[in-house]
């Protein structure tokens, strides 16, 4: 069987089991003989490699251009300050003070275009590293890892997904939340699996994720992790919104224990393995071979 599909694993709330689902799906696809790539897009704290062994195939240092302003050439005309949409240029023309607030710069280059005095040059600043690990002949993991102190992981996530290409099945482990890093991750997905838990927090954050995906016109379904915990409100919500419930992962100490030791739960849980396989077949049949929308 072949098929090209990108599946993002996401959730509004953190700690619901995105990485549990991503790594186990990756394992299952490997077992079934697919060409599969797992992209760890949780660039603030990537951890997919805790669960697998792999050999580094390639590393990419992700850089951004940051302006360098030569105050001796600057005429303090204020055009660069005006062009900057991100308040990254600090300017006091009366005192002839100009400086770049590097943390705020998005590297768009507008200030360089604005400057007629030739006072602005650019330097490279490293944002993070994208590493490709070869796990087996047909499978690899691409890890996005941002540098400490960098404000946004978006450009690193983008590069990691670019590195993954379009070949085979691509699983993207999304960062939590519903802001830019999440949107960047799911934007290229053909299908999104939202992982949640049956608690008020889980429900509240699930609603935010669903609303975001609706505006992006994405297809999605929900996995309830730690089923048996909390209350039934999440089930009513899914029913009311006609959102497919893909799978329930029981609240089970043996699962938590295996996961906490960096083990793949499906290896020793045939029942869950079967549920994962059924879910996967259904997703691949319905959404496989579809060209992603972006």
């Amino acid at each position: 069987m072949t098929g090209n599909i990108k599946i993002a694993i996401a959730s509004g709330k953190g700690g619901t089991g995105k990485t549990l689902v991503s790594t186990n799906l990756f394992y299952l696809l490997q077992q079934q003989g697919y060409v599969v790539t797992l992209v760890d897009c949780d660039a603030e704290e990537p951890n997919a490699m805790v669960f697998f062994d792999g050999k580094v195939e390639k590393t990419n240092d992700i850089k951004q251009k940051i302006p360098v302003i030569d105050a001796s050439k600057c005429t303090f005309c204020g055009k660069c300050h005006e062009y900057c949409n991100y308040n990254a240029i600090f300017l006091l023309p009366e005192s002839e003070i100009i400086s770049v607030i590097e943390d705020l710069c998005h590297g768009c280059g507008a200030c360089s275009v604005a400057c007629n005095a030739g006072a602005i040059s650019e330097k490279d600043v490293s944002l993070g590293i994208v590493t490709s690990f070869r796990v087996s002949e047909k499978s690899k993991i691409i890890e996005a890892r941002m540098k400490v102190g960098v404000y946004s992981p978006v450009s690193i996530i983008k590069e990691a997904n670019k590195e993954a290409g379009n070949h085979g099945i691509i699983i993207m482990d999304s960062p939590p939340g519903t802001s830019c890093p999440f949107i960047q991750t799911v934007s290229t997905a053909d299908y999104v699996i939202l992982v949640t838990e049956p608690t008020p927090f889980g429900l509240s954050d699930l609603k935010q994720s669903v609303n975001t995906l609706k505006t992006m016109s994405k297809s999605y379904g929900v996995i309830i992790n730690r089923a048996g915990l909390g209350d039934k409100a999440i089930y009513s919500y899914l029913q009311q919104e006609s959102i497919p419930l893909l799978l329930e992962i029981p609240f089970d100490k043996t699962i938590a224990s295996a996961y906490s030791r960096g083990k793949i739960v499906l290896e020793h849980n045939p029942q869950l393995l079967q549920s994962f396989a059924t879910m996967l077949t259904a997703i691949l049949e319905k959404y496989g071979n579809r060209h992603n929308q972006r």
């Binding site: 308040n87 990254a88 600090f90 705020l104």
Partner: peptide, 16 residues
């Protein structure tokens, strides 16, 4: 309502 950098932009304002 600045998307980002409200602090530095406000310093700019009061320093001027």
């Amino acid at each position: 309502d600045a998307e980002q950098g409200a602090g530095p932009a406000s310093v700019n304002l009061v320093a001027s």
